[in-house]
Simulated assay, not measured.
Amino acid sequence: MRDFSGLRVLIVEDEGLVALMIEDMLQGIGCEVVASVSRLSEGRTIATTVQVDLAVLDVNLAGQPSFPIAEILHKRQIPFIFSTGYGTDGLPREFGSHPTIGKPFSSSDLKQAIAGAMKL
């Protein structure tokens, strides 16, 4: 697996402790967390404007799906990973090829998902 140093990442996660855990994992493998947001509206704004190389998206943001953020990232050709505690059954077909990691996950799981998202 390659070094992810300097990879700029957006985190969209509504659980504060989970967001901090993901941020720590990302920083531990050399990534730069550009932004960490917890709501759909914030995520859409950031996904539209910020320069990132990758995003980690919680599928369920306080009861709202993060799919509108995924659509923005897809249009901008920015790879993303779904993070979910619910499995992949609820993912729309158009996002079925994007890596999905189940909560809870390890740093190793995250690295593997990043490699898949970046097509390494």
Rank of each mutant, 00 (worst) to 15 (best):
26 L>G: 02
19 A>E: 06
33 V>I: 01
4 F>W: 00
69 I>G: 03
62 A>K: 09
102 G>M: 11
109 D>I: 00
113 A>W: 06
120 L>T: 06
46 I>N: 00
20 L>P: 13
11 I>N: 03
34 V>H: 04
16 G>Y: 15
43 G>I: 03
84 T>C: 03
11 I>P: 01
91 L>K: 00
110 L>R: 00
64 Q>H: 12
75 K>W: 13
26 L>S: 10
8 R>W: 04
22 I>Q: 01
2 R>E: 11
105 F>M: 06
20 L>T: 15
44 R>T: 11
100 T>Y: 02
46 I>E: 11
112 Q>N: 08
69 I>F: 09
2 R>T: 10
13 E>W: 14
24 D>G: 12
82 F>A: 02
114 I>M: 12
52 V>H: 09
23 E>H: 09
78 I>K: 07
18 V>T: 11
53 D>G: 07
9 V>W: 13
15 E>R: 09
27 Q>K: 13
34 V>E: 12
31 C>H: 01
64 Q>C: 08
31 C>N: 07
56 V>K: 08
25 M>R: 11
85 G>S: 04
116 G>A: 10
108 S>R: 14
90 G>W: 13
100 T>I: 05
65 P>R: 10
96 G>Y: 03
71 E>W: 03
30 G>K: 05
9 V>C: 04
54 L>P: 08
21 M>P: 01
113 A>N: 13
24 D>T: 15
97 S>I: 00
3 D>P: 08
101 I>Q: 06
100 T>L: 12
39 R>T: 06
12 V>Q: 07
